[in-house]
Design a binder for these strands. Structure first.
Lengths: 260, 260
DNA sequence: TAGATTGTTAATCGATTAACAATC
DNA sequence: TAGATTGTTAATCGATTAACAATC
């Protein structure tokens, strides 16, 4: 560790993913009038351990003051710098369906320095419509909106079937950062960065854990000697689990193709 | 590894997060008429290494056939089982703003076995409105919609300021799985499972990497002996990086409170 | 039997955590 | 100086990966 310039030192991915949370917590603290904060207090506000927080900050070359803590404003600036929050980023949204619509109007983007500068869709019924103050344009207009030299993030909110094609067009137009809401794997050149948000997956993961809790609590029941007692007998739960076991409903088959 | 019953063996978190992707890929393969698939091919479709896939499946106690591969339908059933996809899950959405609206109409939920059974909001202007076929009800109606015995997932799409209060009410009503779209840390009892989706964070993480690429490519430029050449001279890029350096725009401060 | 592909082993890597010496 | 809190070290844990023996 020598140079301290932003972007010089390597920051672990897990740390990067937490930086936005720290930043947000610091904003809240600053608004509350706090000038200084300890790793303990900040970590707490974000719901992580203080050791992890300090480790994370150490990757930024951040300097707190021993015995005192961190200067809230300075640390905020430092993290914002690392996240590129000093620059305003342009965002284009492709696919103005249900979700694209919502994203176009999402206040959380603007407040963190992201400016939605273009909405795109090739559906005849949407093109031309004005959404959140911006006209929906055909995909062909992409190049005219993407100013080379201005960093632009592409948000993909199209159905899975179209995701790859649309992504290709974004890349062709010079976009190198893509946020993909379609449940598909996108193939992109090595210099393009793709992040994926899969809403249904999130529910599926929750369901996995919930089922597990349910099964566990059932499994913990003593093997019934007589015919099993009625429905949901209270059972010695293992760790977590308050819900009764799942009532079996008809099987459900996964389908492809639907999104947004 | 003895018993093979779903929910018995421990499955690593990283694996759980990939199961929905495998499931989806298997659906696609099945639709394409494939009866059998090798770990190589399936892994490929999901964008992971085949070793990782096989390791993941081994946690489920899955049995493929050496020399042959996996039976597409059987593997699909097996994973669906583990994910609790055999049961239909109820979902309630709280906060019918921009995002809640979109989620209520999101086709990707239904197709994966999630049924939206209730929409809630306390805003005078939304209550009573019908969204995607469901009436928006006041939060007080929560208990009447949540059938004890039916596993229900709560989706939080309210502004950050209200997230904790609303979450408390969900928990009080018996919800033990929460998907949180508000950029706040939720405090919940140990038996409640919370997952968070922070849309702005995703952009921030992309911005971090993009900035890094930009800085790197600039840093790789030979120290100019004469006054630096104009603007974006082509520069020996390190690995990735095609974009010019960021044009500095005014600083942007983070704010709290806005969501959805 | 020969070829293919699994399930598992062992090595490696990255992330988390607790503990503490450094230092304000 | 005494108390507080950082930044870092070292131990631990979990996840990834390559390689290969088992076996269809």
């Amino acid at each position: 560790m020598d140079e301290d310039e932003v972007g010089t030192v390597d920051v672990p991915e897990a740390t990067v993913a937490r930086l936005p949370q720290y930043l947000r917590a610091l904003s809240t603290l600053a608004e509350a009038g706090l000038r200084t904060v300890s790793s303990e207090a900040l970590a707490d506000a974000v719901g992580v351990g203080s050791a992890k927080l300090r480790k994370d900050l150490s990757h930024l070359g951040s300097y707190g003051t021993r015995g005192v803590g961190y200067d809230v404003e300075q640390l905020h600036r430092q993290i914002a710098d690392h996240l590129g929050q000093t620059t305003s980023w342009n965002v284009v949204i492709v696919g103005i369906g249900n979700l694209g619509h919502a994203l176009a109007g999402y206040g959380g983007f603007a407040s963190r320095g992201f400016r939605v500068v273009g909405l795109f869709d090739d559906g005849a019924h949407v093109v031309g419509e004005v959404v959140s103050g911006l006209p929906v344009r055909p995909l062909d207009d992409l190049p005219s909106v993407l100013r080379p030299g201005e960093p632009t993030i592409g948000v993909l909110a199209v159905p899975a079937e179209h995701a790859q094609v649309v992504c290709d067009r974004l890349v062709a137009a010079g976009v190198t950062s893509v946020l993909n809401f379609a449940p598909t794997v996108l193939r992109v050149p090595a210099d393009v960065d793709v992040r994926k948000v899969d809403l249904a997956s999130e529910l599926q993961i929750l369901a996995f854990h919930a089922q597990r809790r349910a099964v566990r609590s059932t499994a913990a029941a003593p093997a019934p000697t007589a015919p099993a007692p009625t429905a949901t007998t209270s059972v010695p739960a293992l760790q977590r689990s308050r819900r009764p076991a799942l009532g079996a409903t008809g099987p459900v088959l996964d389908r492809v193709g639907e999104v947004v």
